[in-house]
């Protein structure tokens, strides 16, 4: 039975008409036109649909939209601030960590979750942090470089009192 639910996404509130069986990934992409989040394998293996719900890494392809009521959803569209890319996004560009780009939104969200918890991760911790995200271009070396660079820039901002 269709119903209206309220979703909080990137700080905005959306009233959405959904069925209980609608998946978050499809609601984001098809009903709300938030197509930055990609649908890859659709079964929780590839990580490209990763979003943050209440700060935790979550696979939008395995999440019922109706179960997200009352929770804070952050997608790749919510990373930039006033037209400026987030440090993680800019570091991916600067380090050449984007090839075909399909895994990038999920990689960025996994990096965000990692750096929120560990502002100064080791290379091993970065690899663990993105271990649920597959890059079929196999550009992992530059992705790890980019996360490392983003950590440095975020820490410099934090030291300068600018916050994230």
């Amino acid at each position: 039975m269709k119903r209206v639910i309220e979703l909080s996404i990137n700080g905005n509130s959306y009233d959405v008409v959904i069925s209980p069986e609608d998946l978050l990934i499809d609601v984001l992409r098809q009903k709300l036109d938030l197509t930055g989040t990609k649908k890859g394998c659709g079964q929780g293996d590839c990580g490209t649909c990763t979003v943050l719900i209440d700060g935790r890494r979550t696979l939008a392809c395995l999440t019922l939209a109706i179960a997200c009521e009352g929770r804070q959803i952050l997608t790749i569209e919510g990373m930039e601030r006033q037209g400026a890319l987030h440090h993680i996004q800019q570091a991916f560009i600067d380090k050449g960590a984007i090839q075909c780009g399909f895994c990038t939104p999920g990689m960025v969200m996994s990096a965000k979750a990692l750096l929120d918890e560990r502002p100064d991760p080791t290379e091993h911790e970065i690899k663990l942090g993105i271990s649920g995200n597959l890059c079929r271009c196999t550009g992992y070396v530059k992705i790890v470089d980019a996360v490392r660079e983003a950590a440095v820039r975020l820490q410099a901002d934090a030291a300068a009192g600018k916050g994230a």
């Binding site: 929780g44 990580g47 990763t50 935790r56 890494r57 979550t58 696979l59 395995l62 999440t63 996994s110 979750a113 663990l128 942090g129 271990s131 649920g132 995200n133």
Partner: peptide, 9 residues
């Protein structure tokens, strides 16, 4: 188990 995402869910 799984990946960081799977473990969080």
């Amino acid at each position: 188990i799984g990946s960081p995402q799977i473990r969080a869910m």
